[in-house]
């Protein structure tokens, strides 16, 4: 289960303009897992995927896929890798079925109408198979990109921001699809800048910012660290200490203000703030104002860095 499918060591990319988009990245991906690469825009997620898939020429470091050095065994490795890119790069005048068959051929697989039918049906594209791509909605085009990436049955699948700009329904649908692929044993690496998405899908999460992998951890452990809800209760008459009934919440007392900072990537913070408010009322502690805000991913990263939570474990796999 935990045999590595991808091993990246010291991967660096400096673009022609001099910008270092990847800075000595070390990362190991286990076979069969769903790995979420979480980071704000411009963090280097697409560059990292590009370096593995052949779109970006690394400036340094090594990538091993399926146990072999990718710079030497790129042909055999690429046959086993699929990519759903972030941008909708498609020949808009071609039809759905032809495009998927084209992809299958590009990856060296024999034509297989039955397999393509299966893929198109699983993505609800079968009815549109003879439609030109330009006539499809944005969500449908994204499905076509997925169908193309699956056409050669890859063992390792990259999804670059699969749900960016996609409506809620399609997003749920896609999560379901990804779950199914995992059941079939496909290893999946997805990038996202939504904490919620990482939480929903991933087994493990890696945080990337400014070209550096800051932290890699199991999803649950990671979510616990990504406290992102901040609340300030302004108290009419502050108590001498935080009541014991509230002791298990991440609270600090600062003069007239009771500070809360916590929650996970998802909705726990808001629930806790509501529960604290209730408990304060029960305790007879009156608050005159409540200010609450959710930090952005970038703010959380800065906070984590400042608190030294990344010290010495940046490369932990």
């Amino acid at each position: 289960m935990s045999e590595p499918i991808l091993e990246i060591a010291g991967l660096t990319k400096t673009y022609a303009g001099g910008l270092t988009a990847l800075d000595r990245v070390d990362l190991t991906i286990r076979r069969g897992e769903i790995f979420a690469l979480l980071g704000p825009n411009g963090a280097g997620k697409t560059t990292l995927i590009g370096a593995i898939c052949g779109l970006v020429r690394p400036s340094g470091g090594t990538i091993r896929a399926f146990g072999e050095d990718l710079s030497r065994s790129w042909r055999t490795a690429r046959q086993r890798i699929g990519l759903v890119p972030q941008e909708l790069g498609l020949d808009m005048f071609d039809t759905v079925e032809r495009q998927v068959a084209y992809s299958r051929g590009m990856f060296g697989c024999a034509p297989d109408k039955a397999r393509i039918e299966e893929i198109l049906k699983s993505l609800s594209l079968w009815d549109k198979r003879n439609e030109q791509l330009r006539k499809l909605s944005g969500g449908m085009k994204r499905r076509v990109l997925i169908a193309k990436a699956l056409s050669h049955d890859p063992e390792l699948l990259f999804l670059d921001e699969p749900t960016a700009g996609v409506d809620v329904e399609l997003r749920r649908d896609m999560w379901k699809q990804i779950g199914k692929l995992r059941e079939q044993g496909v290893t999946i690496i997805l990038t996202t800048h939504y904490i919620e998405e990482a939480e929903e899908m991933a087994d493990r999460v890696g945080i990337i910012d400014k070209g550096r992998i800051l932290l890699v951890d199991d999803k649950d452990a990671m979510m616990a660290r990504l406290g992102r809800t901040e609340a300030i209760f302004s108290l009419e008459a502050p108590p001498a200490a935080i009541p014991t009934s509230l002791a298990h919440y991440p609270l600090t007392l600062d003069g007239n203000e009771l500070h809360y900072r916590g929650g996970d990537g998802a909705g726990r913070g808001k629930q806790e703030v509501a529960a604290i408010a209730q408990q304060l009322t029960r305790e007879g502690i009156i608050f005159t104002a409540l200010e609450q805000k959710e930090s952005s991913l970038e703010e959380i990263f800065v906070g984590l860095v400042e608190r030294g939570e990344f010290a010495g474990e940046g490369a932990a796999a």
Binding site: L55, W74, R78, L90
Partner: peptide, 13 residues
């Protein structure tokens, strides 16, 4: 159109 990504990521020389 950007569809060149596929040629660049496929096992083709």
């Amino acid at each position: 159109t950007g569809s060149i990504y596929e040629i660049l990521t496929a096992p083709v020389g």
